[in-house]
Design a protein around this nucleic acid. Structure first.
Length: 493
RNA sequence: GGCGCGUUAUCCAAGAGGCUAGGAGCCGGUCUGCAAAACCGUUAACGUCGGUUCGAAUCCGACACGCGCCUCCA
């Protein structure tokens, strides 16, 4: 397997070769903890979660660092609004972040450092930058002099002159150049502060990521990720800081995920068109949200809408229904060695065997191509189709067919562990969806059960008219009935 | 204004010079008292105009439309 990744720095897909064979260092920008996370954060979390999982699956020893930026103007503003201190705000939203990511089923990163635990490292880098002439002190603040770094803006492919042309950059009177950015901010009265060679103050945005990545991954490491909106200025500034201070390459592969849109427009706090993760998870199951996110390539924009989430749910239901049927057979059948010493696999059996053989290679091929989860899911849906067909046409399960079914089931466990899907017992997941839908319907399960009993009695008495009336009545309330020889079951449309 | 990205059937969405993507849906069929689920079958696509090529959704150019970054943002 040869992994190829799209590198923002070069604008091309490149063969992934880690710095040290068998090891990967990966840093992903987490969040500034001043509010609840929205679906955009969920996407970034899920995308880098599957990248982390896939790298491990590919045999790498991955060190995955995802930070909390727990000191920042926004946090301070929020604290002032609520009349409390910055720590209270930061801790509250760190906890909320952890809850949200946990519910989304994200694997824990190797390290989750906080900016405020790395003030010494931050100060060290700033000192190095001043010593090398990349930074200057100005009235208690320290600024990075962007003109001293020749590669500035190499990631976003711009140049300083163009940036200034139509720019809305305010020239701070403390700055030498309008594009210079703060490394250290002197604290105003009432603001949190740490001691530094330049007086009491706090770090600027950007520097904490340089410090924490260097602490855990070294001066040069393999992968740095984040949302597209971080390319400029955040990641551009990180490069300037780290490469300016260390004099060596900072990051080998830059990966950026696309936005979540609402009606084709970017979801963002400033536009006010965002949904928090916890809001969405009230309505949709977390694996549904995951499937929705993974059904598009991570670099493309995705449009968040009820219709798209419901389609994702239907798709996931299709998979879980199949898995549930597989489980029923595997749990219900005991292997009888006597059956079929010689088996002639049927046509559907041969098809299924072919899909089984191709499943993992095709899945891996898709993921190797810049983590093409949408294509990988397509492979799994083909597996579902082949398995359903096999189940529908197989009357007696021989040891061969049972082992094929077990193999299919295992493939979903294996690929699911990479995508973070199918982690729930199928019967439990299906039941959960059913009851969640039932909550939205204007009729109680007890009432439904009562009507089903009445309908069954009518049908036994060949009173199909009454039976159909009841079915239509329930259908009008969004309840579908399924008759089988054993019993009548129901689900919400 | 600068830089960049996108436009695939009813909708969502992969693919990227000749090889069935996939999902949701529509319409037939099997099953069923009639249905549903499941399965089978069928349908349909590459924004517009040029160019390169034996062959173009795919490469090149122009145009149109949409979006993003250039200000805090995942």
């Amino acid at each position: 397997m040869t992994l190829r990744v799209y590198n923002t720095l070069t604008g091309e897909k490149e063969i992934f070769v880690p710095l040290l064979p068998g090891k990967v260092g990966m840093y992903v920008c987490g969040v500034t903890v001043y509010d609840y996370c929205h679906i955009g954060h969920a996407r970034a979390g899920v995308v880098f979660d599957i990248i982390f999982r896939y790298l491990k699956f590919a045999g790498y020893d991955v060190t995955y660092v995802r930070n909390y930026t727990d000191i920042d103007d926004k946090i301070i503003n929020r604290a002032n609004q609520e009349g409390t201190d910055y720590r209270t705000i930061a801790d509250r939203y760190i906890q909320a972040f952890d809850e949200d990511m946990n519910r989304l089923g994200l694997a824990k990163p190797t390290v989750e450092p906080k900016a405020t635990d790395h003030i010494a490292g931050i100060i060290g880098i700033i000192e190095a930058l001043i010593a090398k002439g990349h930074a200057y002190v100005s009235d208690g603040d320290v600024y990075y002099a962007v003109e001293t770094f020749p590669h500035y803006l190499k990631l976003s492919g711009r140049n300083l002159e163009e940036m200034q042309a139509g720019a809305r950059v305010e020239v701070g009177d403390k700055k030498r150049h309008p594009m210079d950015f703060a490394l250290w901010k002197g604290s105003k009265p009432g603001e949190p502060w740490w001691q530094s060679p330049w007086g009491n103050g706090r770090p600027g945005w950007h520097i904490e990521c340089s410090a924490m990545s260097m602490e855990f991954l070294g001066k040069t490491f393999d992968i740095h990720g984040g949302g597209k909106d971080l390319v400029f200025p955040h990641h551009e500034n990180e490069i300037a800081q780290s490469e300016g201070a260390n004099g060596c390459k900072f990051v080998r592969y830059w990966l950026h995920n696309g936005f979540v849109n609402i009606n084709a427009e970017k979801m963002s706090k400033s536009l006010g068109n965002f949904f928090t993760i916890r809001e969405v998870l009230k309505k949709y199951d977390s694996e549904t949200l995951r499937l929705f996110i993974l059904s598009a390539h991570y670099r493309s924009p995705i449009d968040f809408s009820d219709q798209n989430l419901e389609e994702a749910q239907s798709g996931l239901e299709r998979i879980y229904s199949c898995l549930s049927a597989l489980d029923d057979i595997l749990n219900g059948q005991s292997l009888s060695a006597e059956i079929a010493v010689i088996e002639n696999p049927s046509q559907v059996g041969l098809e299924l065997q072919e899909k089984i053989d191709q499943c993992l290679p095709r899945f891996v091929e898709a993921m190797d191509d810049d983590f093409n989860s949408a294509l990988a899911l397509g492979v799994l849906f083909e597996m579902v189709r082949a398995a359903n067909r096999f189940l529908a046409e197989t009357k007696e399960y021989t040891s061969l067919s049972l082992s094929m079914i077990a193999h299919v089931r295992h493939l979903f466990v294996e690929t699911g562990s990479i995508l973070g899907l199918f982690a729930v017992l199928p019967s439990v997941w299906l039941e959960k969806i059913k009851s969640a839908k039932a909550d939205r319907v204007d009729i109680s399960p007890e009432e439904i059960e009562r009507l089903i009993v009445e309908r069954t009695e009518s049908r036994v008495a060949k009173n199909f008219k009454r039976g159909d009336e009841i079915r239509d009545l329930l259908l009008a309330k969004g309840i579908l009935l399924f008759d089988s020889p054993q019993a009548t079951t129901w689900k919400v449309k």
